[in-house]
């Protein structure tokens, strides 16, 4: 086989793969058109509530410095079980921009969305009484080595988790403000 033929084969192969990837991406989008309650991104909180009919989603009324309402990104689904993820970008001067806080709420206890903020190493774990609920507080480090805290508790039929690049004290203030 000549070098020219082999090279042309590579080009044709690459073009074929590109078409395959585009076709798969298109196919991947079709269920979102047919079914509205699959996991997707929403423009704002109200749109998500109206579209999915999910009520009882808790939101904080207190935001530490560098964070503010509304969330930078909202992802939610109605099926196979209701779940909402809210991301908050850090906006302080001299600090890394990027996702600094995530709040996720789901019917499933083991719902772990992964994503831009994850505790890579837990330094300390404690049970903390949160306005009459028993919450689990994890203190550790995020992927970048920056201190991170996570608090998680069960509220009626929802598991609520707040994860942030914050001190445990600040994180608990955010969590407590979700009951006001």
């Amino acid at each position: 086989m000549s070098v020219k033929r082999t090279a042309f084969g590579f080009l044709a192969f690459a073009a074929g793969l590109a078409i395959l990837v585009i076709a798969l991406k298109t196919l991947n989008g079709l269920p979102l058109i047919a079914q509205k309650d699959l996991m997707r991104r929403y423009g704002d909180f109200e749109e998500m509530q109206t579209s999915l009919g999910i009520r009882g989603v808790l939101v904080p009324s207190y935001f530490p410095e560098d964070f503010r309402w509304p969330p930078t990104r909202i992802l939610a689904q109605g099926k196979p079980y209701p779940a909402v993820i809210m991301e908050f970008e850090r906006s302080g001067e001299g600090k890394d921009r990027g996702i600094g806080m995530m709040i996720y709420q789901s019917v499933e206890d083991n719902f772990t969305p992964g994503g831009p903020l994850e505790i890579s190493r837990v330094r300390e774990r404690a049970t903390y009484p949160l306005k009459g609920r028993s919450a689990i507080l994890d203190v550790g480090f995020c992927g970048s080595g920056e201190p991170c805290s996570r608090i998680s508790w069960r509220e009626k039929d929802l598991r609520i988790t707040v994860l942030a690049r914050l001190t445990p004290f600040e994180l608990m203030k955010v969590a407590e403000s979700m009951f006001r």
């Binding site: 991406k25 196919l27 991947n28 772990t112 969305p113 994503g115």
Partner: peptide, 10 residues
């Protein structure tokens, strides 16, 4: 994870 699934091809 949810985030990985959202960014996949299919």
């Amino acid at each position: 994870s949810t985030y990985f699934r959202l960014g996949t091809i299919f």
